[in-house]
Design a protein around this nucleic acid. Sequence first.
DNA 1: AAGTAGGCCAACCGCTCATGC
DNA 2: CGCATGAGCGGTTGGCCTACT
Length: 178
Amino acid sequence: MGRAPCCDKARVKRGPWSPEEDEQLRGYVRTHGIGGNWIALPHKAGLNRCGKSCRLRWLNYLRPDIRHGGYTEQEDRVICSLYASIGSRWSIIASKLPGRTDNDVKNYWNTKLKKKAMPMPVLPGPGANACRPPCSPRRSRRRRPAPPPSTPAHQAATCASPPPACTSRRTPCRGSCT
DNA sequence: AAGTAGGCCAACCGCTCATGC
DNA sequence: CGCATGAGCGGTTGGCCTACT
């Protein structure tokens, strides 16, 4: 017995977003904010979309501080280093790169960085296997309160240090770590 | 010039977890 | 305390574009 779906897939539009829909969502969020309820947002905004779809679109493309492409060597190193230490925690990695989104970082890793990283031999020294993650656990998440308009989400990038590895209560680790 | 293969990116799917009741 | 619901997240897929044969 699964959960009820968050929206009626037969009734909501799916697939690529049109410029009109983008503008509708952007305009609504600008005026009213997210309001802490993505499920209700598409109705309020007059969008025939699933709330999850709206959230994804906003976070990955419509937010004003988003950057696409043009990854620098430094960013490559940050991604590689964090991937080595915490695994595929894309949201955490993205939070260290202002203007980058988890989806963007994930795509970048899967299509480019992984190829650069994988040929690397596994060496015993610290940092030698810099792009080989210890594991990719689904760690517990601390939900952030809805950020006020003056605090962009990417300011979370200033958090001090990556979380400890493999501390999930229910799914300690999906990988081979012990 | 046409066909095919591979790469890239946007979006969806389904799971986990936090929170409110 | 347990359940239901919504948010957040990582993995995967589909389609378009470009390069190669």
